[in-house]
Design a protein around this nucleic acid. Sequence first.
RNA 1: UGGGGCAUGGUGCAAUGGCAGCACAGCGGACUUUGAAUCCGUUGAUCCAGGUUCGAAUCCUGGUGCCCCGGCCA
Length: 560
Amino acid sequence: MSEENSATRSNFITDIIDEHLENGRFDHVHTRFPPEPNGYLHIGHAKSICLNFGIAEAYGGKTNLRFDDTNPTKEEVEYVESIQEDIRWLGFDWEDRLFFASDYFDAFYEYAIQLIKQDAAYVCDLSADELRQYRGTLTEPGKNSPYRDRSVEENLDLFERMKNGEFPDGSKTLRARIDMSSPNLNMRDPVLYRILHADHHNTGDKWCIYPMYDYAHGLSDSLEHITHSICTLEFEDHRPLYDWILDQLDVFHPQQIEFARLNLTHTVMSKRKLLQLVREGFVSGWDDPRMPTLSGMRRRGYTPQAIRNFVDVVGVSKANSIVDVELLEHVLRDDLNERARRVMAVLEPLRVIIDNYPEEQEEAFEIPYFPYQDDSPIRQVPFSKEIFIERTDFMEDPPKKFYRLAPGREVRLMNAYYITCTEVVKDDDGNVVELHAEYDPESRGGMSPDGRKVRGTLHWVSARHALSAELRLYDYLFSKADPYEVPEGGDFTDNVNPESLQVLSDAKLEPSLKEAGVYEPFQFMRQGYFCADADSAPGALIFNRTISLVDTWAKMQRGN
RNA sequence: UGGGGCAUGGUGCAAUGGCAGCACAGCGGACUUUGAAUCCGUUGAUCCAGGUUCGAAUCCUGGUGCCCCGGCCA
């Protein structure tokens, strides 16, 4: 849709880049998206992906995909695969530039030796607990480690033996020698390497020492000649360390730039919390359509374009903010409105018998998939004596302004005929079980020659031709805008919306939907956008409601 | 006086010393073979106090509020 996106439109990041290009610090732009393969990507990551790929593209540059896989205890191949699938689905291409931090383990090791030789790093024997003690607090300086002044030779020897596996996990670390009294805790001799006798998804058992994020990330950026390393706000405090390492080693020096991560109302966005929802069974998996994961949204029926448009429209800044999920929904509807074929489906069927329509008669209406498009493709929709209409489209005793079907009232069956309700059939409990009606043969196609107006237009499905289907209707996963708003001692899971999933087991669809492909967007007219679920099968159709249509009538009722 | 960062309608983002604007939401109306979409109209904001300036959302000073940092996680 829009030619402009958040990357081409100026923002504080492009301002910085423009300055670099102008003052000659860089003459091109090269970014990277650096996920840790320890979970599935979510809409928050999409913001980072769109920013990194979008900005590079806007400047004619490139973007690398690099897995930040420096902690083998948390990372799995399952995730490196899903992450690639999700990025591709979003429509971005890293071409031949797929990298892993683990590709650089040898280089990292050599750089560490260089730091030791420069007296800028040392092997420390403090335990994790002791290290914490020595670090000091937010307001008090730390103390130097007793191992801080080991000789270069001893450090070299110890570090090599760490690598060789001579020491148990946690017994030693390699630390940067910076300043234990720095007001920035990240500069108080941060750990560069820790001992971890763990198998790595890429390097197997080759290593038993693994680099820490701060050490590996900047060096990975440098090795790949990344010019602008875009990350989230919480790394702002780490930038001095990022810079320190690259300065010490005197290598290519990218610029780290931090932006505010995306937050949405009615959802949680931390991998840890999402994992908890999966593990504790609040959702069916990472790709549950209620999840903010890209795989969940894909299954729900989101299009990549809707997500990209959303990222564009929320913009980028350094201010912590929470975007109203209604904006996401607006952008989704906007995109689906353009691409979804219009079909008829009845969610909660109510049978209508058209008494003056011949029993054995059938006819097929040719109805365009896109009613407002001149060259729209069409499909055949069968009509017969018995049809289903939406239960909510009939009221025996309608309030003012309800202009759907009611006793004695005439409405239009979309693209078919006018019908008038002649009789209401109820069961012993007084529930309406079916309706009788008469149609006007003159109104074929939904128009009468005398030009009389009917206020209501209803969707319908021929009973004898209808396809039965299961429909899954979704609502917000959390009832509260802020899921973390819980009473003392509560947990965010207390706010899980008990009605976030509603299953309609006997919806009636027009026959053309038999061919619906998975994820292919349809508008069930007057209801919402739907797509076939991955689990849908010819004899057992399942559709997910991606998003309902804006419902002004429902809003009016709520307001009253 | 630990350090770092951020404050613009209800929400998100612009305005880079010169008329505070856009989108969503809200409200009102038009149109309608989708109570959708579309179209028209409309309510509503610069955290506070000083200062500089012809002129301040923007610059300066001092406050206030919120977020992040004490993993051998990223």
